Simulated scan of single mutants.
Amino acid sequence: MERTGTRFIIVGILLLFFIGTGPVQAFSSDRLTVDLLDDGDAYIAFEYTLNMAEKVAVYLKIADPNAELKKALEDMFHHPVTVDEVTSNSVRFRVEAFSNITETNGSIVMKTPEISFTMAEKALRKYWFAPLVQADYSAEIATITYPDGYVEEFFDTDKIPATSRALP
Rank of each mutant, 00 (worst) to 15 (best):
V95C: 12
S99H: 04
Q25P: 06
V83T: 15
Y48N: 04
R31M: 10
H78Y: 11
M52T: 14
P131S: 02
V91F: 02
S99A: 15
V24G: 05
A72F: 03
A97W: 03
A63K: 07
F77N: 02
R165N: 07
V83E: 15
R3F: 10
G40D: 04
I141D: 01
K122I: 05
P168I: 11
R94E: 09
H79M: 09
Y150I: 11
A63G: 13
T4S: 06
F77K: 03
G12F: 06
P113I: 00
A97L: 05
A72E: 08
T102G: 03
L69W: 04
R3T: 12
E68L: 14
V81M: 12
A135V: 03
A97T: 12
D84Q: 13
N100T: 15
N89Q: 13
F129V: 08
Y43K: 10
Y146V: 09
I19E: 05
S99F: 02
P113E: 00
M1P: 03
Q25W: 04
L14A: 00
S90I: 10
L132H: 05
M76K: 14
F77G: 01
T33E: 10
T4F: 00
S28M: 07
P113G: 00
N89W: 15
D156Q: 14
E54C: 09
K111Q: 12
D75L: 12
V95A: 11
F155M: 05
T145Y: 04
R125F: 03
P168A: 14
E140R: 09
M1E: 09
S99V: 08
V81E: 07
S107Q: 14
I10K: 00
A130G: 04
I115L: 11
P23V: 10
G12P: 01
Q25K: 12
V81N: 07
F8A: 06
D158Q: 09
D75V: 07
V86D: 02
A135C: 00
F155I: 06
P65W: 02
N100W: 00
R3V: 13
F17V: 03
D41S: 15
S164N: 09
Q25C: 07
Y127P: 01
K111N: 06
N66Q: 15
R92C: 10
D156F: 14
G20S: 11
E2M: 12
T163D: 03
P113K: 00
I19P: 02
D148E: 10
F154M: 06
A26L: 07
S29D: 04
R165I: 08
L36R: 01
T143G: 08
D38G: 06
E85D: 14
L132T: 05
H79Y: 13
L36E: 05
F18N: 02
M52L: 15
S29N: 05
E74H: 13
D158I: 01
I9V: 15
A166W: 07
V95G: 07
G106T: 04
I115N: 01
T118E: 13
D30E: 13
T87R: 10
N89S: 15
W128Y: 12
F98W: 03
F17S: 04
G149W: 15
L60M: 10
L132C: 03
N66C: 14
F129P: 00
E96W: 08
